[in-house]
Amino acid sequence: MAPPGSRRWAYVRIMAGTILGGGLGFYVMHRMETSYKAKMEERLQRYEAHMLAKAKEAQQLQEEGQREDQAQRLPDL
């Protein structure tokens, strides 16, 4: 059987390792989460810009189509 001082030291090492491991795990997960959120914000901004450009292009095509329709309706003089 191990002497009492050695058993106490083992408990201290286990508790210290658990606390430090938990702190390290929390830090790593926090860094991963903030990195992921930053990437997703950037991706969302690019997507919104793409959708705005696409909507603007569709609107221009629609306006051109309306102009062509009006030009066809006007009689040639």
Rank of each mutant, 00 (worst) to 15 (best):
A16F: 04
R13H: 14
R46M: 04
D76Y: 00
L52Y: 04
G22W: 03
W9I: 06
M32E: 03
D69W: 15
D69G: 12
W9H: 07
G21A: 00
E57H: 02
I14R: 15
M1G: 10
M40R: 07
M40S: 10
M32R: 12
G65S: 12
M40W: 06
Y27I: 12
E48A: 02
Q59K: 03
S6A: 11
A71I: 05
T34C: 00
R31P: 00
G65H: 14
G21F: 03
M1W: 11
D76K: 09
L52H: 07
I19P: 02
G17K: 01
G23L: 02
Q72N: 11
T34L: 06
Q62K: 14
L44V: 12
R8Y: 08
G22K: 01
A2T: 07
K37I: 06
I14F: 13
R13D: 00
H30A: 11
T34R: 02
G17V: 04
G25V: 00
A2H: 07
W9F: 13
E63K: 13
E57Q: 00
I19S: 00
I14S: 14
Q59W: 01
L24C: 06
S6C: 06
R67H: 14
Y11R: 11
L61T: 08
M15T: 05
E68K: 13
Q72A: 08
P3V: 14
A16Q: 03
K37V: 07
M51Q: 13
R31V: 06
L44K: 14
E41H: 01
G65L: 14
Q45H: 12
P75G: 10
E33K: 07
R7M: 06
M1T: 15
E64K: 08
E33F: 09
M1F: 14
K54F: 06
L44E: 15
L74R: 15
E64G: 07
Q72T: 14
R67G: 05
S6V: 09
Q62A: 15
M15C: 08
R46Q: 05
G65Y: 12
Q62L: 15
H30D: 03
I14L: 10
R8I: 01
L77V: 12
R8M: 03
S6L: 02
M1H: 09
Y11K: 05
A71D: 07
G5I: 04
E41L: 08
K39C: 10
H30N: 05
E33C: 05
E41T: 12
Y36K: 13
M32S: 10
G25K: 02
A38V: 05
D69F: 09
Q66S: 10
G23Q: 00
R46K: 04
Q60P: 06
H30G: 04
E68A: 11
E41A: 15
T34S: 03
R46I: 07
M40H: 13
E41W: 09
E68S: 04
P4A: 00
